[in-house]
Amino acid sequence: MTPLHQIDPGRHLLIAGPTASGKSALALTVARAQGGLIVNADALQIWSCWRVLTARPTSDDEAAAPHALYGHVAPDVAYSVGDWLRDVAGLLHRRLIVVGGTGLYLTALTQGLAHVPPVPPTVRAEGDARLATEGGLARMAADLDPATRARIDTRNPARVQRAWEVLTATGRGLADWQADTPPPLIAAHDAQRILVTADRDWLADRIAGRFHAMMRQGALEEARAMLPSWDPARQWARAIGAPDLVAHLRSEIDLPTATERAIIATRQYAKAQRIWFRGRMKDWQPVQADAKSTDRN
Protein backbone atom coordinates (compact mmCIF):
# COMPACT_ATOMS: atom_id res chain seq x y z
CA MET A 1 0.00 0.00 0.00
CA THR A 2 0.99 3.66 -0.27
CA PRO A 3 3.31 4.76 2.57
CA LEU A 4 1.84 7.43 4.83
CA HIS A 5 4.54 9.95 3.95
CA GLN A 6 3.27 9.88 0.35
CA ILE A 7 -0.25 10.90 1.38
CA ASP A 8 -0.92 14.63 1.54
CA PRO A 9 -2.73 15.48 4.80
CA GLY A 10 -3.72 18.86 3.38
CA ARG A 11 -6.06 17.44 0.76
CA HIS A 12 -9.02 15.09 0.66
CA LEU A 13 -8.07 11.46 0.07
CA LEU A 14 -10.14 9.24 -2.21
CA ILE A 15 -9.52 5.49 -2.09
CA ALA A 16 -11.13 3.16 -4.63
CA GLY A 17 -10.66 -0.54 -5.13
CA PRO A 18 -12.45 -3.85 -5.65
CA THR A 19 -14.23 -5.53 -2.80
CA ALA A 20 -11.99 -7.28 -0.24
CA SER A 21 -8.83 -5.51 -1.47
CA GLY A 22 -7.99 -3.89 1.88
CA LYS A 23 -8.90 -0.29 1.06
CA SER A 24 -10.80 0.28 4.32
CA ALA A 25 -7.70 -0.72 6.31
CA LEU A 26 -5.74 1.93 4.43
CA ALA A 27 -8.43 4.53 5.14
CA LEU A 28 -8.39 3.73 8.84
CA THR A 29 -4.59 3.84 9.00
CA VAL A 30 -4.56 7.28 7.37
CA ALA A 31 -7.36 8.62 9.58
CA ARG A 32 -5.60 7.52 12.75
CA ALA A 33 -2.25 8.97 11.66
CA GLN A 34 -3.34 12.18 9.94
CA GLY A 35 -6.92 12.82 11.00
CA GLY A 36 -9.93 13.04 8.73
CA LEU A 37 -13.47 11.76 8.39
CA ILE A 38 -13.83 8.35 6.70
CA VAL A 39 -16.76 8.57 4.28
CA ASN A 40 -18.43 5.53 2.71
CA ALA A 41 -18.50 5.28 -1.08
CA ASP A 42 -20.04 1.81 -1.27
CA ALA A 43 -23.67 1.72 -2.40
CA LEU A 44 -24.29 -1.52 -0.49
CA GLN A 45 -22.91 -0.32 2.83
CA ILE A 46 -25.42 2.53 3.15
CA TRP A 47 -28.23 0.17 4.25
CA SER A 48 -29.01 -0.07 7.94
CA CYS A 49 -30.09 -3.72 7.61
CA TRP A 50 -26.72 -5.02 6.40
CA ARG A 51 -23.65 -4.68 8.57
CA VAL A 52 -22.05 -8.12 8.39
CA LEU A 53 -23.16 -9.04 4.87
CA THR A 54 -21.71 -5.87 3.32
CA ALA A 55 -18.55 -5.90 5.47
CA ARG A 56 -19.20 -2.49 6.99
CA PRO A 57 -16.58 -1.18 9.44
CA THR A 58 -16.79 -2.82 12.83
CA SER A 59 -17.70 -0.98 16.02
CA ASP A 60 -14.01 -1.04 16.93
CA ASP A 61 -13.14 0.62 13.61
CA GLU A 62 -15.78 3.29 14.18
CA ALA A 63 -14.41 3.94 17.67
CA ALA A 64 -10.87 4.34 16.31
CA ALA A 65 -11.75 7.08 13.80
CA PRO A 66 -14.87 9.03 12.79
CA HIS A 67 -16.97 7.44 10.02
CA ALA A 68 -19.91 8.78 8.01
CA LEU A 69 -22.59 7.50 5.61
CA TYR A 70 -22.43 3.89 6.76
CA GLY A 71 -25.74 2.14 7.47
CA HIS A 72 -27.61 5.44 7.50
CA VAL A 73 -30.43 4.54 5.07
CA ALA A 74 -33.48 2.50 6.11
CA PRO A 75 -34.62 -0.27 3.75
CA ASP A 76 -37.92 1.48 2.95
CA VAL A 77 -36.14 4.59 1.61
CA ALA A 78 -35.04 5.06 -2.01
CA TYR A 79 -31.48 6.33 -2.28
CA SER A 80 -29.58 7.50 -5.36
CA VAL A 81 -26.11 8.69 -6.25
CA GLY A 82 -27.55 12.20 -6.18
CA ASP A 83 -28.67 11.65 -2.58
CA TRP A 84 -25.17 10.43 -1.72
CA LEU A 85 -23.56 13.50 -3.29
CA ARG A 86 -25.84 15.78 -1.29
CA ASP A 87 -24.84 13.94 1.88
CA VAL A 88 -21.15 14.28 1.01
CA ALA A 89 -21.58 17.99 0.24
CA GLY A 90 -22.64 18.53 3.84
CA LEU A 91 -19.31 17.11 5.03
CA LEU A 92 -16.89 19.14 2.89
CA HIS A 93 -15.95 21.46 5.73
CA ARG A 94 -13.76 18.61 6.97
CA ARG A 95 -10.85 16.72 5.47
CA LEU A 96 -12.50 13.66 3.93
CA ILE A 97 -11.12 10.17 3.38
CA VAL A 98 -13.64 8.78 0.92
CA VAL A 99 -13.35 5.03 0.50
CA GLY A 100 -15.39 2.49 -1.44
CA GLY A 101 -15.85 0.41 -4.53
CA THR A 102 -18.91 1.95 -6.17
CA GLY A 103 -17.45 3.47 -9.32
CA LEU A 104 -20.54 5.54 -10.07
CA TYR A 105 -20.31 7.28 -6.70
CA LEU A 106 -16.62 8.05 -7.13
CA THR A 107 -16.81 9.28 -10.71
CA ALA A 108 -19.84 11.42 -9.88
CA LEU A 109 -17.91 12.89 -6.95
CA THR A 110 -14.88 13.77 -9.07
CA GLN A 111 -16.46 14.43 -12.47
CA GLY A 112 -19.87 15.80 -11.56
CA LEU A 113 -23.39 14.43 -11.91
CA ALA A 114 -26.20 15.68 -14.11
CA HIS A 115 -29.26 16.93 -12.24
CA VAL A 116 -31.94 14.68 -13.69
CA PRO A 117 -35.54 15.48 -12.61
CA PRO A 118 -37.15 13.00 -10.20
CA VAL A 119 -39.05 10.15 -11.81
CA PRO A 120 -42.75 9.97 -10.83
CA PRO A 121 -43.73 6.90 -8.78
CA THR A 122 -46.10 5.80 -11.55
CA VAL A 123 -43.25 5.61 -14.05
CA ARG A 124 -41.08 3.74 -11.56
CA ALA A 125 -43.88 1.26 -10.92
CA GLU A 126 -44.28 0.73 -14.66
CA GLY A 127 -40.52 0.18 -14.95
CA ASP A 128 -40.62 -2.41 -12.14
CA ALA A 129 -43.47 -4.22 -13.90
CA ARG A 130 -41.77 -4.22 -17.29
CA LEU A 131 -38.48 -5.44 -15.88
CA ALA A 132 -40.23 -8.32 -14.11
CA THR A 133 -41.67 -9.72 -17.35
CA GLU A 134 -39.85 -12.32 -19.41
CA GLY A 135 -37.42 -10.54 -21.72
CA GLY A 136 -38.22 -7.25 -20.03
CA LEU A 137 -34.60 -6.17 -19.65
CA ALA A 138 -33.84 -6.60 -23.35
CA ARG A 139 -37.01 -4.75 -24.40
CA MET A 140 -36.30 -1.85 -22.05
CA ALA A 141 -32.76 -1.60 -23.38
CA ALA A 142 -34.05 -1.60 -26.96
CA ASP A 143 -36.42 1.28 -26.12
CA LEU A 144 -33.58 3.54 -24.99
CA ASP A 145 -32.22 6.32 -27.13
CA PRO A 146 -29.08 5.24 -29.02
CA ALA A 147 -26.70 7.59 -27.18
CA THR A 148 -27.74 6.31 -23.75
CA ARG A 149 -27.83 2.67 -24.84
CA ALA A 150 -24.24 2.97 -26.07
CA ARG A 151 -23.02 4.37 -22.75
CA ILE A 152 -24.54 2.05 -20.15
CA ASP A 153 -24.17 -1.62 -19.30
CA THR A 154 -27.32 -3.05 -20.90
CA ARG A 155 -26.92 -6.22 -18.81
CA ASN A 156 -27.38 -4.25 -15.60
CA PRO A 157 -31.11 -4.16 -14.75
CA ALA A 158 -30.80 -1.18 -12.39
CA ARG A 159 -28.96 0.95 -14.95
CA VAL A 160 -31.31 0.03 -17.80
CA GLN A 161 -34.43 0.65 -15.75
CA ARG A 162 -33.10 4.00 -14.54
CA ALA A 163 -32.35 5.11 -18.11
CA TRP A 164 -35.74 3.91 -19.34
CA GLU A 165 -37.54 5.74 -16.53
CA VAL A 166 -35.72 9.00 -17.26
CA LEU A 167 -36.49 8.81 -20.97
CA THR A 168 -40.14 7.93 -20.29
CA ALA A 169 -40.63 10.65 -17.67
CA THR A 170 -38.75 13.52 -19.35
CA GLY A 171 -38.63 12.75 -23.05
CA ARG A 172 -34.85 13.23 -22.94
CA GLY A 173 -32.32 10.43 -22.84
CA LEU A 174 -30.06 10.05 -19.84
CA ALA A 175 -27.02 10.76 -22.02
CA ASP A 176 -28.57 14.08 -23.00
CA TRP A 177 -29.12 15.05 -19.37
CA GLN A 178 -25.57 14.00 -18.52
CA ALA A 179 -24.20 16.35 -21.15
CA ASP A 180 -25.29 19.20 -18.84
CA THR A 181 -23.16 18.00 -15.95
CA PRO A 182 -22.18 20.65 -13.36
CA PRO A 183 -18.69 20.91 -11.80
CA PRO A 184 -17.69 18.09 -9.43
CA LEU A 185 -17.87 18.38 -5.64
CA ILE A 186 -14.20 17.41 -5.34
CA ALA A 187 -12.05 18.40 -8.31
CA ALA A 188 -8.90 16.49 -9.22
CA HIS A 189 -6.57 19.12 -7.74
CA ASP A 190 -8.45 19.11 -4.42
CA ALA A 191 -7.81 15.44 -3.64
CA GLN A 192 -5.29 12.66 -3.80
CA ARG A 193 -6.93 9.76 -5.66
CA ILE A 194 -5.72 6.22 -5.02
CA LEU A 195 -6.87 3.06 -6.79
CA VAL A 196 -6.05 -0.17 -4.98
CA THR A 197 -5.21 -2.97 -7.40
CA ALA A 198 -4.93 -6.67 -6.60
CA ASP A 199 -3.91 -9.93 -8.18
CA ARG A 200 -7.06 -11.71 -9.36
CA ASP A 201 -6.32 -15.07 -7.73
CA TRP A 202 -5.25 -13.46 -4.47
CA LEU A 203 -8.44 -11.42 -4.43
CA ALA A 204 -10.58 -14.48 -5.21
CA ASP A 205 -9.13 -16.26 -2.19
CA ARG A 206 -9.72 -13.20 -0.03
CA ILE A 207 -13.34 -13.00 -1.16
CA ALA A 208 -13.99 -16.63 -0.31
CA GLY A 209 -12.33 -16.36 3.09
CA ARG A 210 -14.22 -13.18 3.89
CA PHE A 211 -17.61 -14.65 3.04
CA HIS A 212 -16.99 -17.69 5.22
CA ALA A 213 -16.05 -15.27 8.02
CA MET A 214 -19.28 -13.34 7.40
CA MET A 215 -21.25 -16.53 7.85
CA ARG A 216 -19.56 -17.14 11.19
CA GLN A 217 -20.27 -13.55 12.23
CA GLY A 218 -24.01 -13.60 11.54
CA ALA A 219 -24.70 -12.92 7.86
CA LEU A 220 -27.37 -15.62 7.75
CA GLU A 221 -29.09 -14.10 10.78
CA GLU A 222 -29.15 -10.72 9.04
CA ALA A 223 -30.84 -12.32 6.04
CA ARG A 224 -33.32 -14.11 8.29
CA ALA A 225 -34.27 -10.79 9.92
CA MET A 226 -35.09 -9.31 6.49
CA LEU A 227 -36.95 -12.38 5.21
CA PRO A 228 -40.47 -11.12 6.14
CA SER A 229 -39.98 -7.99 4.02
CA TRP A 230 -37.89 -9.55 1.28
CA ASP A 231 -38.49 -8.03 -2.15
CA PRO A 232 -35.80 -8.69 -4.77
CA ALA A 233 -36.77 -5.51 -6.63
CA ARG A 234 -35.80 -3.26 -3.71
CA GLN A 235 -32.42 -1.58 -3.62
CA TRP A 236 -31.40 -3.05 -0.27
CA ALA A 237 -32.08 -6.57 -1.56
CA ARG A 238 -29.20 -6.24 -4.05
CA ALA A 239 -26.58 -6.80 -1.37
CA ILE A 240 -24.21 -9.44 -2.71
CA GLY A 241 -25.12 -12.81 -1.23
CA ALA A 242 -28.51 -11.75 0.10
CA PRO A 243 -30.57 -13.48 -2.63
CA ASP A 244 -28.62 -16.70 -2.12
CA LEU A 245 -29.06 -16.72 1.65
CA VAL A 246 -32.75 -15.97 1.28
CA ALA A 247 -33.08 -18.86 -1.17
CA HIS A 248 -31.56 -21.13 1.48
CA LEU A 249 -33.87 -19.80 4.19
CA ARG A 250 -36.79 -20.58 1.91
CA SER A 251 -35.51 -24.17 1.58
CA GLU A 252 -34.81 -23.71 -2.14
CA ILE A 253 -31.08 -24.57 -1.89
CA ASP A 254 -28.81 -25.96 0.81
CA LEU A 255 -26.42 -23.74 2.74
CA PRO A 256 -23.18 -24.86 1.01
CA THR A 257 -24.76 -24.07 -2.36
CA ALA A 258 -25.94 -20.68 -1.14
CA THR A 259 -22.48 -19.91 0.18
CA GLU A 260 -20.76 -20.93 -3.04
CA ARG A 261 -23.18 -18.89 -5.15
CA ALA A 262 -22.61 -15.84 -2.97
CA ILE A 263 -18.84 -16.20 -3.32
CA ILE A 264 -19.14 -16.50 -7.09
CA ALA A 265 -21.43 -13.45 -7.21
CA THR A 266 -18.90 -11.46 -5.17
CA ARG A 267 -16.09 -12.43 -7.53
CA GLN A 268 -18.21 -11.35 -10.49
CA TYR A 269 -18.90 -8.06 -8.74
CA ALA A 270 -15.17 -7.53 -8.21
CA LYS A 271 -14.60 -8.16 -11.93
CA ALA A 272 -17.23 -5.55 -12.82
CA GLN A 273 -15.56 -3.09 -10.45
CA ARG A 274 -12.18 -3.61 -12.10
CA ILE A 275 -13.71 -3.04 -15.53
CA TRP A 276 -15.21 0.26 -14.33
CA PHE A 277 -11.93 1.39 -12.78
CA ARG A 278 -9.93 0.57 -15.91
CA GLY A 279 -12.40 2.34 -18.17
CA ARG A 280 -13.27 5.43 -16.16
CA MET A 281 -10.58 6.02 -13.55
CA LYS A 282 -7.40 5.76 -15.59
CA ASP A 283 -5.92 8.91 -14.06
CA TRP A 284 -6.09 7.62 -10.46
CA GLN A 285 -2.83 6.60 -8.78
CA PRO A 286 -2.61 2.77 -8.73
CA VAL A 287 -1.24 1.07 -5.63
CA GLN A 288 -0.83 -2.64 -5.05
CA ALA A 289 -2.94 -4.23 -2.32
CA ASP A 290 -1.09 -5.23 0.81
CA ALA A 291 -0.92 -9.03 0.87
CA LYS A 292 -0.54 -8.91 4.66
CA SER A 293 -3.71 -6.91 5.24
CA THR A 294 -6.42 -8.62 7.25
CA ASP A 295 -9.01 -5.97 6.42
CA ARG A 296 -12.23 -7.21 4.83
CA ASN A 297 -12.63 -4.35 2.36
Results as ranks from 00 to 15, higher is better:
I207T: 02
R274Y: 04
Q217A: 07
L227Y: 07
Y269C: 07
S251L: 06
V246N: 04
A219Y: 14
D205M: 06
R238P: 02
I264A: 15
V196H: 05
E252L: 11
A208P: 13
L249H: 10
R200G: 01
A204I: 11
G218D: 09
T266P: 00
A198R: 01
A247G: 08
E222S: 10
A213F: 09
G218I: 04
Q217W: 01
A262D: 07
Q268F: 01
H212Q: 03
I264S: 08
V196A: 05
A262Q: 05
M226E: 11
R267M: 13
S251Q: 10
A204V: 08
D231C: 13
F277V: 05
L227E: 14
K271P: 00
R206D: 09
E221I: 10
R238T: 05
L203P: 06
Q217R: 05
M215I: 14
I264D: 15
I240N: 14
D231Q: 12
S251N: 14
H248A: 14
V246S: 02
L203C: 10
R234T: 04
D205E: 09
L255H: 06
A223I: 08
R250V: 02
T266R: 02
L255Y: 11
D205C: 02
R224E: 04
H212G: 02
R238F: 00
E222V: 11
A233Q: 13
M226N: 06
A233F: 07
I240W: 12
R238D: 08
M215V: 15
A237L: 13
Q273A: 15
W276R: 07
A265C: 12
I207V: 08
V246I: 15
A213E: 10
F277I: 09
R210H: 09
L203Y: 11
H212V: 04
L249W: 04
A219M: 06
L220I: 04
R200I: 10
S251G: 09
Y269M: 07
T259A: 04
S251T: 11
T197Q: 10
A258V: 14
A225F: 06
H248Q: 08
E222G: 09
W236E: 13
S229T: 12
H212C: 01
A272Q: 12
P232G: 02
A272M: 10
L220C: 11
R206Q: 03
A223L: 02
A247L: 03
E260L: 04
P243I: 01
A265T: 03
F277T: 03
G241L: 05
A242W: 02
W230V: 00
L249S: 08
A223W: 04
P228Q: 13
R250M: 12
L220M: 11
R206Y: 10
P232L: 04
F277D: 06
Y269P: 02
D231S: 07
P243D: 11
W202D: 13
W230I: 00
R274D: 12
T259Q: 12
W276M: 06
